[in-house]
Nucleic acid binder design. Structure first.
Lengths: 174, 174
DNA sequence: TTCAATGTAAAACGATCGGTTTACACTGTC
DNA sequence: GACAGTGTAAACCGATCGTTTTACATTGAA
């Protein structure tokens, strides 16, 4: 495990549990077991570290979304919530905490959201056989809503989203 | 306009645009045009101020949700987004920034979410004539998802949520 | 065996954090 | 005309912020 891996892993957990602004550099160096000099040599700055954490999370999340149906997509989200917990979308949380004033963070968030939206668009077109932007938008909203609502309603929110998606997909025929 | 009104109004705007942790007390006093001593005499502490801001926002939001159908509920959300902008649910953002470690904030968030869920439950039962917990959960997810997705997809997310809700409500017959 | 690279620990930078305190001006009322 | 109440301005508290720096240990290759 490289220094960067240790740093990113520890940082992601700390950011996720305590927030980005509330997590100081000392907590990050302490969590990763490295000196502050090493952190800055590798990460450059706190904002760059946040952007890198988001980038790595995006990759890990995308790996989970390598499925072949909308139904499996929501099942994958259910697994994610069960394994990683439900504290809301870390990307949107980063955006909210920084007010959109940090370009590197904005870029990381938009890239992630674009990737998920594209994944959904491909799956919807694959299942329905046609380009249906409104249906795609509805699935995106359900996916986002399940992530957010799971914070205070638990897994049942994801289950409901999956069933709602199934209904909408079924009704999209012809 | 009382001191408390000025303080809460200015604080809500600052918290919403720049985040809770990133907004210092000096920005709050400066924004409200009052001294720090006056702020502490009225609000007690930063966390108490945050809780009060959330409480007032909940009231204002609830006033908007005094509608008579699920369709009107999503139209109300559309209005809200157009007027107040889409920076994500301020309650969940507060929860995320504090990691759920501040009881007064947790209470304010849960009270708000319970109120919205109850409102949705009443509307669903009023329109379908029966108690359908799964449908209620689906509408909650759509509502939450529209709020979150509007951050990066704009109003179309709310429109899609409204249409999805209409489909699900229509399919809930008997 | 010199040299650059990579790491550590720890002090220090100026700025800002949430919060308190002191000193003082203005108000309306008994 | 004393007095409590409410406000301001500003200094101050210790702590922490993100970041840089100094000084030193370890390593592997030329």
């Amino acid at each position: 495990m490289t220094i960067m891996d240790k740093l990113v892993t520890a940082s992601e957990a700390l950011f996720d549990r305590h927030g980005f602004t509330a997590t100081g550099m000392d907590k990050l160096t302490q969590g990763a077991g490295i000196s502050s000099r090493t952190l800055y040599k590798h990460a450059g700055s706190k904002n760059a570290l946040i952007a890198r954490v988001l980038g790595e999370r995006d990759k890990r999340f995308a790996r989970r979304l390598e499925v072949e149906s909308i139904d499996a997509l929501f099942k994958a989200l259910e697994d994610w919530v069960r394994v990683e917990g439900a504290r809301g979308c870390l990307f949107l949380r980063a955006l909210g905490e920084t007010g959109g004033d940090t370009p590197e963070i904005v870029d990381a968030v938009l890239a992630h959201k674009a990737r998920v939206a594209e994944r959904i668009a491909v799956l919807v077109e694959g299942e329905t056989g046609r380009d249906d932007p409104m249906l795609v938008e509805q699935i995106i909203v359900l996916f986002e809503g399940a992530t957010a609502a799971a914070v205070y309603r638990g897994e049942q929110a994801v289950v409901a989203a999956r069933q709602a998606a199934a209904s909408l997909m079924a009704g999209a025929g012809s």
